[in-house]
Design a protein around this nucleic acid. Structure first.
Lengths: 135, 135
DNA sequence: TTGCGTGCAAAGGTTTTGCATGGCA
DNA sequence: TGCCATGCAAAACCTTTGCACGCAA
C-alpha cells in the first residue's frame, strides 16, 4: 500500500510548530519535546520537517547566523505581505506587515520580472535600539 | 607592539576576493589558491575572512542553500542601493540597483526605525524564466 | 501482512579551536 | 624581540544516511 502514515512523532512535531512563535530550529524542537516528556530522535525531526516542507505545510528559512536552519509553520493567514527584518546586532526578528512593502513586491514583479517569496526572505540590518547604541 | 600583520596569505585571500566575481565560499578560495600553486590552510582562510569582515573589507552572506556561507569583497562603488535577488528554482543571483528600492530603504528607516544592510540582504523568489516554466 | 516511519549510530560537510611553530614589525 | 598569524589535527556543530526494528493501515 502506498501513502503516508500519521505517527505520533509527526503529530508532535507539527503540533509544536503550530503552537510555536515562528522560526524554530530542529534542536529547539528536540529540546521542547524532551521537556514535555516526549522523546524523539533528531534524525526523525529532520526527516519529518523535510516531508512537511515538501507538502507545503512548513517553510524552511535560513537565518544568517550559522546557527542552522529555521522552520516555520505556514498558517493560512500568513501568506500576505509579511516581511522579516533581522537585526545584525541583537538578533531580534521583527515581523513587518506594510502596504508599502506590498507595492514593492509589485514593483519588482512588473519592473524586474521577479516574484518575491516573502516567507523566505529575511532583510538584514540594525534595529533602532542598536543603531542608537552605536558609538 | 599591537596591530595587524600583512602576511602573504592575507594578501592572497584578499586579492582573490577582489578579482572574483562575487559570493565565494571558503572552499572555493582554497581550491583556487591551490590551483595557482599557493597553498593555504582552510583554518587560515576562515580566520582571515573573519578578520576582513570585522574590518568591513569583506561581507559575509548566507545563501539559503546549505552550501555554507559566501563572502564578497566590498568595493567602494558597491555601497549604494544594491539588492540581491536569488531565484529559488535555478539559483541565479540577480544584482539590482533601483531608485525604488532606495526609497524603500528610507521608508523602512523612517517608518519602522530599521536600518537595512543592503549588502547582507538576499531577497528570495522566482525569476521570470522559472516562473514561466512553472506548470 | 506490507512497507513506511523510527531510533541509533555512523558518516559527511562546514566551521571552530588548541597548540606549537613560523614570520612580520 | 614581541606577538600575531599560520598549519595541522582534533573537535564541535549541523545534517544526512544505512540498517534493523516497530508500527500504522
Amino acid at each position: 500500500m502506498r501513502g503516508e502514515y500519521s505517527t505520533s512523532q509527526r503529530k508532535a512535531v507539527l503540533e509544536f510548530l503550530k503552537g510555536a512563535s515562528h522560526h524554530i530550529t530542529p534542536s529547539e524542537i528536540l529540546a521542547h519535546l524532551k521537556e514535555s516528556g516526549r522523546s524523539i530522535s533528531l534524525a526523525t525531526i529532520y526527516r519529518t520537517l523535510d516531508k512537511l516542507c515538501s507538502e507545503g505545510i512548513v517553510r524552511k528559512m535560513s537565518m544568517g547566523d550559522g546557527a542552522g536552519s529555521c522552520y516555520q509553520y505556514i498558517a493560512q493567514s500568513d501568506c500576505h505581505s509579511h516581511f522579516h527584518l533581522k537585526c545584525i546586532e541583537c538578533g531580534r526578528l521583527i515581523h513587518l506587515s506594510c502596504d508599502f512593502l506590498a507595492s514593492m513586491e509589485k514593483h519588482i514583479l512588473y519592473e524586474h520580472g521577479f516574484t518575491i517569496s516573502t516567507g523566505r526572505t529575511v532583510i538584514y540590518g540594525k534595529c533602532s535600539t542598536c543603531e542608537a547604541l552605536k558609538k
